[in-house]
Amino acid sequence: MDTRSETIQATGTAGQAARQGLAVTGGLLGGLAAMSCCIMPLVLFSLGAGGAWIGNLTALAPYQPIFVTMALGSIGYGFWLVYRRREACADGDACARPLPKRSVKLGLWAATFMTAAALAFPFVAPILLEI
């Protein structure tokens, strides 16, 4: 393999890892933001954190659809990067890519769980309050 193809391969794998990391970061931040209006105050109060500032988190409720959209877009892009079908390619060729790290997959699934919880909370909360 010549120097040019080694450079292309190194750039491709570094770019792939950077895109995966960006997608995970966007998904996690979007999931936290989506949870900030409803679930986050409940969790903080359950953990003993109190104060008037927790009530201010509910002011973010009108922005929840924007946060959920951002999270779902980042999560979808991240899953596409991680789990898409890889093209057949010999080891060491410029098209070879390393497998994604375990932390990337864990971050994507954590962001998915947080976003799903934020989406399900308005439907589950009334049921839990009746119990």
Rank of each mutant, 00 (worst) to 15 (best):
10 A>C: 13
55 G>H: 06
54 I>L: 15
59 A>L: 14
41 P>S: 07
59 A>R: 10
36 S>Q: 08
124 V>F: 10
43 V>Q: 05
120 A>V: 12
1 M>L: 07
129 L>E: 15
83 Y>I: 01
73 G>F: 02
44 L>A: 10
72 L>K: 00
37 C>P: 00
112 T>D: 01
39 I>A: 04
105 K>E: 09
31 G>E: 02
58 T>Y: 08
15 G>R: 12
7 T>P: 05
81 L>F: 09
12 G>T: 07
18 A>K: 10
14 A>Q: 11
122 P>Y: 02
44 L>V: 09
33 A>S: 13
5 S>G: 02
38 C>T: 14
120 A>K: 07
69 T>H: 03
36 S>E: 09
78 G>S: 07
31 G>W: 00
9 Q>I: 03
28 L>G: 08
119 L>I: 14
95 C>I: 15
128 L>K: 11
99 L>W: 12
90 A>V: 14
69 T>V: 09
53 W>T: 07
39 I>G: 00
98 P>L: 13
123 F>L: 12
17 A>Q: 12
94 A>I: 08
101 K>G: 05
52 A>Y: 06
13 T>P: 01
106 L>H: 08
90 A>W: 14
40 M>R: 02
118 A>Q: 04
6 E>F: 15
43 V>F: 10
80 W>G: 00
54 I>C: 12
26 G>H: 03
118 A>I: 10
106 L>M: 09
108 L>G: 09
11 T>C: 00
49 A>R: 03
50 G>W: 15
21 G>Y: 09
71 A>Y: 00
75 I>F: 01
40 M>F: 08
63 Y>F: 14
56 N>I: 01
96 A>S: 11
51 G>C: 08
124 V>Q: 04
9 Q>N: 08
35 M>G: 07
77 Y>C: 01
33 A>R: 08
43 V>K: 14
67 F>D: 02
72 L>R: 05
15 G>H: 09
30 G>A: 15
63 Y>M: 14
16 Q>M: 14
72 L>M: 10
127 I>A: 08
47 L>N: 10
57 L>P: 02
51 G>L: 08
38 C>W: 08
91 D>M: 13
15 G>P: 06
103 S>D: 07
50 G>P: 04
78 G>P: 03
33 A>K: 05
103 S>P: 01
14 A>P: 05
67 F>V: 06
127 I>Q: 15
110 A>G: 04
16 Q>N: 13
115 T>S: 06
58 T>V: 02
32 L>Q: 13
86 R>V: 04
54 I>S: 02
64 Q>S: 03
86 R>A: 05
103 S>I: 06
59 A>Y: 14
10 A>V: 13
2 D>V: 06
71 A>W: 00
45 F>E: 03
28 L>S: 06
41 P>N: 12
29 L>Y: 07
129 L>Y: 09
79 F>A: 11
